[in-house]
Nucleic acid binder design. Structure first.
Lengths: 146, 146
DNA sequence: CTTCAATTTAACAATCATTACAAATACAAA
DNA sequence: TTTGTATTTGTAATGATTGTTAAATTGAAG
């Protein structure tokens, strides 16, 4: 077995998730693809690795990972659920043009409000939207052409 | 015509939206219901006012309002789109128990990151999740019963 | 290596929110 | 009133997600 996969296997075993081929593949995919993929992207890309793969399995696996606190659901856009391997807290920026989601570091701990005294805050999400540098260039050059 | 509705009509006319009965009703609903309703909630509540109302109209109207910058889509949860009348910038807290969404004031302008130099930031959203004071009480009393 | 029970996967059907579309209606200008 | 345009409605289509169930796989025990 690929030594990288071996590590992922033990990582899953440590949190009491049986390391099936599918689960290890999804975990490996998430670790190596920082672009916050949708279920469909994961499904399509992993089909070349596991031809019999079912979409339901992706959903089941991701649910399991979310439950275990390994993965976080991003709801930055209303029509597509995206998944994020949990590392340090960070903010997300989504480009309205190319739809890429970028991470950026942000001190979430310092974000507080007196109005939330008495509330138990479990989770904090910061979503920015706009246009990334690459697409800004394209938009400007399109404009020049007109 | 109700003088309140009259005001809403002119407000819509000012931004070049023809003030149909349905549109004014939706706007009125959003202004008087701060709980960030789903399409379904708006639809069900307004049926008593406009019996022939269609859900498509709610969608069309909200799309129009979003386009006009009157309303903002909240994507705090992945399976339900919620709508927010735009006032001053604020954060949102969603209670995982009762699913209510609370506003809280937050200085979004000061939230910046050097990593986003070169990015054009158009929109900022801050979503907190957890348990609201009321539900915290219920959870504690449930615990005592066991 | 076999057997058995439990877990996991895969395929398909069902659901639900949203969108697309066409016909009916309302509205404004002439 | 008539005509043309915008709006609403009802229904059908779409697409992501969930539910169900049987088959496949796994792991443990003998």
């Amino acid at each position: 077995m690929n030594p990288l996969y071996k590590n992922l296997s033990t990582e899953l075993e440590n949190i009491n998730i049986r390391p099936s081929i599918q689960r290890v593949a999804v975990l490996n995919y998430l670790i190596n693809n920082f672009f916050h993929p949708t279920v469909d992207q994961i499904y399509k890309d992993l089909q070349s690795v596991i031809p019999t793969l079912s979409k339901t399995t992706i959903y089941n696996t991701l649910d399991l990972f979310v439950e275990a606190g390994l993965v976080k659901i991003l709801t930055i856009e209303d029509n597509e659920t995206r998944y994020d391997i949990i590392t340090e807290p960070h903010g997300h920026f989504k480009c309205n043009e190319c739809r890429t989601i970028f991470n950026f570091t942000l001190d979430l701990d310092s974000m507080e409000s007196e109005e939330l005294n008495g509330f138990k805050v479990i989770d904090k999400d910061v979503y920015f939207k706009g246009v990334c540098p690459k697409c800004l260039l394209n938009i400007n050059s399109d404009f020049r052409k007109e």
